[in-house]
């Protein structure tokens, strides 16, 4: 009977070890999959929690055209910073935490520059 108890304890220990290994693997996988996530959160905290909107601008094809888009987005009240990625057809606006900036405001700004905002993604 003693040997049966000993076998059962060994099985339980093995099972716990496997669970611990699985948990460690999951934590490691999550850390590897999104290594920047904790940094981003920190950046947000240091920015006072300001939000970002990534706008896909249709029709923007050259540097000279990007000027009007940047200027008009910067004029939207509450927008603190604008960055344009020409290769991706994207403009990123950084909005103050307490500002009431909507998709309609951003779409209107892009339209004033002579282009079209096709997608707006808030982060």
């Amino acid at each position: 009977m003693d040997w049966m108890r000993a076998m059962s304890k060994k099985r339980r220990d093995r099972s716990r070890s496997f669970e611990r290994f699985l948990l460690a693997a999951l934590v490691a996988a999550a850390a590897v999959a999104s290594p920047i996530a904790p940094l981003e959160s920190a950046a947000h905290a240091s920015d006072g929690g300001r939000r970002q909107a990534v706008i896909t601008v249709k029709g923007m094809q050259c540097p000279f055209c990007a000027y009007g888009i940047k200027k008009h987005l910067a004029k939207v009240p509450g927008v603190e910073k604008v960055e344009v990625e020409l290769a991706k057809n994207q403009a990123t606006v950084y909005v103050a935490p307490d500002a009431n900036v909507t998709d309609a405001h951003l779409q209107r700004a892009v339209r004033k520059a002579g282009f079209e905002a096709s997608k707006i993604e808030w982060r």
């Binding site: 050259c62 540097p63 000279f64 055209c65 000027y67 009007g68 888009i69 200027k71 008009h72 004033k112 520059a113 002579g114 282009f115």
Partner: peptide
Amino acid sequence: ASAGPITFLTALPVAQSQ
């Protein structure tokens, strides 16, 4: 207008208030 031809006119936009 915008970047475009050197000797004639382009159809690319000039942004409002620009």
